[in-house]
């Protein structure tokens, strides 16, 4: 099977997973599924960060972006936009789940909570441009867990994290690995 055809098949399977709630097919590598899911996630997230938040809040300054977007009548932060999507997916299916984590989280809930998360996030930080894959057992289920670097793609990313009063790190620059997207696919059944 050519790489192109494999990707098409994977995309179809991804769609079926999201709709039907089935787990990843044995015919398809967990890593391929995770890579494709991440491609969609990171593209959407980059578009929102660059074309909405960075353009309107940082360059044109016509609106602000705020964690308290309702009270402040502001844009949802890129990290929140990503997280809300993850929560919506979690309400629809348990065939996969994803999160945005960091070794330097503003919100401490997003610090690594499993041994593999710590290992994966450290690998991403130490090996820019590389992904990390592993398996772990959580709550009695074995998961294929994939880690993808979350990179500062716009000025808004690094400046906001550097200036936030709860940020444990204040020297981020454009292009830095700021954390990681973690995708989990249950391997049992």
């Amino acid at each position: 099977m050519t790489s192109y055809a494999k990707k098409i098949k994977a995309a179809v399977l991804c769609g079926a997973m999201a709709v039907g709630g089935t787990s990843a097919s044995a015919e398809m590598e967990y890593q391929d599924v995770a890579d494709l899911l991440h491609l969609v996630m990171s593209s959407d997230r980059t578009v929102y960060t660059r074309m909405i938040v960075n353009r309107l809040a940082v360059k044109e300054k016509v609106i602000t972006a705020s964690e308290h977007f309702e009270d402040d009548k502001a844009l949802v932060l890129p990290a929140q936009m990503f997280r809300f999507g993850a929560e919506m997916v979690a309400e629809e299916t348990d065939a996969f789940s994803y999160s945005l984590l960091s070794l330097w989280p503003i919100n401490k809930q997003n610090a690594p909570s499993t041994d593999l998360e710590k290992e994966g996030l450290e690998y991403l930080a130490d090996n820019p441009g590389e992904n990390f894959y592993g398996e772990e057992e959580l709550g009695g289920t074995t998961y294929f867990t994939a880690f993808y670097p979350d990179i500062s793609v716009a000025e808004a990313c690094s400046s906001c994290h550097n200036e936030h009063k709860d940020s444990p790190r204040t020297d981020f620059e454009g292009g830095d690995v700021m954390g990681g997207v973690v995708i989990r696919i249950p391997m049992d059944g």
Binding site: A86, A90, D94, S97, S99, S113, T114, E117, L138, G139, T141, Y143, V182, R184, P186
Partner: peptide, 8 residues
């Protein structure tokens, strides 16, 4: 619900 919360 995310499995990363299993310890909790």
């Amino acid at each position: 619900t995310n499995p990363r919360m299993a310890a909790y």
